[in-house]
Write a protein that binds this DNA or RNA. Structure first.
Length: 363
DNA sequence: CTAAGTTCTCGTCACTCGTT
DNA sequence: AACGAGTGACGAGAACTTAG
């Protein structure tokens, strides 16, 4: 992360009241950070003599924790020991650890920073701009999701996905040559296209009317492609199908499939949507007795839970990153402002000194 | 021009914390 | 206890940079 690494923040005590509350971003899940961070104390000239110097202890960012470190600005009280050395007299370590162990919220930190922001910083404007930018990003539909107008699809093209898409990462982009529209599911199985096991595929009908009447918009079929855990999770011959209804709600159903030795899904059958009960539908294995079955069942439940959370979490991660960026921007702005203030104060001190010297000479 | 290296971005999972 | 929100860590792929 260029631009953050090694950047030394020099701040005066103007935000001490806020930094006291600023939680560390090294959550309790990473308490080891406490022992690895390097605290450097930077003395900043202040215009107020004979007072304890308040400086910021800035955690030296490491490659992986640059941004986290930005949230770890703490107040450290230091006093001169009479020989010009700064002696740290900050509150006890335990309290600090307690603060550090609390999980941060960038929103909270940002709000605190914003409320303490020096006037003249065009922060709201900036936020608006950023918000607009984010909106435009979020409304940009990934190129790998087909969102054509619901017109007659060209005969050479694949079924078109209508409605809120379930974006798939490019790596798992549906292989259009291997996917058949769900509307064809009732047809002769010999006409099924082959789907390589281990892929996440997206299925949609070529006919929108068919979709709307059936209440289905998109279907994502996940098989054993997400690692060994998933592979073990799914009982042989079944897969979980995720589908999105017209109202955007997501549903899940397990579907029996047959996989060829070559690893290709040869056939899959999905019940008519009208027969699908609301919510999650699972083919509950009967008579689970062996530990292996129990493990399979729990793994399957886990997979289902993850699948349900995936979309939300994706959005949450985006939001989190946006807030983080906003927060870092805010910090950088603050640094710029404080640096400017520092410069001004130094200049002022210089001119006052000159004035004083000049006056002393003339007297 | 291209291969290798670096940085950026995104999705996913695991985990914690607060709320119900 | 269950659930949702928030966030760190990690991996993968895209985008960019640099050396030969």
């Amino acid at each position: 992360m260029p631009g953050f690494g090694g950047k030394q923040l020099e701040m005066d005590g103007s935000i001490d009241d806020k930094s006291e509350d600023s939680p560390s971003s090294s959550g309790s899940s990473q308490p080891q950070n406490l022992s690895t961070v390097v605290h450097t104390i930077t003395a900043v000239p202040t215009a107020i003599p004979n007072q304890p110097v308040q400086v910021q202890s800035v955690i030296q960012p490491t490659q992986q924790s640059v941004i986290q470190a930005a949230g770890q600005i703490q107040t450290v009280q230091v006093e001169e020991d009479g020989e010009g050395h700064l002696v740290r007299t900050d509150p006890d370590i335990e309290k600090r650890r307690e603060i550090l162990s609390r999980r941060p919220s960038y929103r909270k930190i940002l709000n605190e920073l914003s409320s303490a922001e020096a006037p003249g910083i065009a922060k709201i404007e900036e936020d608006k701009e950023e918000e607009a930018a984010i909106t435009s990003i979020q409304t940009t539909i990934p190129s790998y999701v087909q969102t054509s107008e619901p017109t007659e699809p060209p005969s050479h093209q694949l079924p078109i996905i209508y409605g809120p898409p379930v974006p798939l990462p490019p790596a798992r982009m549906q292989d259009s040559s291997k996917v058949r529209g769900i509307g064809d599911a009732s047809q002769d199985s010999s006409s099924y296209k082959k789907v390589t096991a281990g892929q996440t595929i997206q299925i949609a009908a070529a006919n929108q009317n068919e979709l709307t009447t059936q209440g289905l918009q998109t279907i994502t079929m996940t098989n054993a492609g997400q690692g060994a855990v998933t592979a073990a999770a799914m009982p042989a011959g079944t897969t979980i199908v995720q589908y999105t209804q017209g109202d955007g709600s997501q549903q899940f159903v397990t579907v029996p499939v047959s996989i060829s030795p070559a690893g290709e899904v040869q056939a899959y059958q999905i019940r008519a949507p009208s027969s699908l009960p609301a919510g999650v539908v699972m083919a509950t294995p009967t008579g689970i007795t062996s530990p292996q079955q129990l493990a399979e069942e729990s793994a399957r439940k886990r997979e289902l839970r993850l699948m349900k959370n995936r979309y939300k979490n994706r959005e949450a991660a985006r939001e989190c990153r946006r807030r983080k960026k906003e927060y870092v921007k805010c910090l950088e702005t603050r640094v710029a402002v404080l640096e400017q203030q520092n410069k001004t104060l130094i200049e002022e001190l210089k001119s006052l000194k000159e004035l004083y010297c000049h006056k002393a000479e003339t007297e």
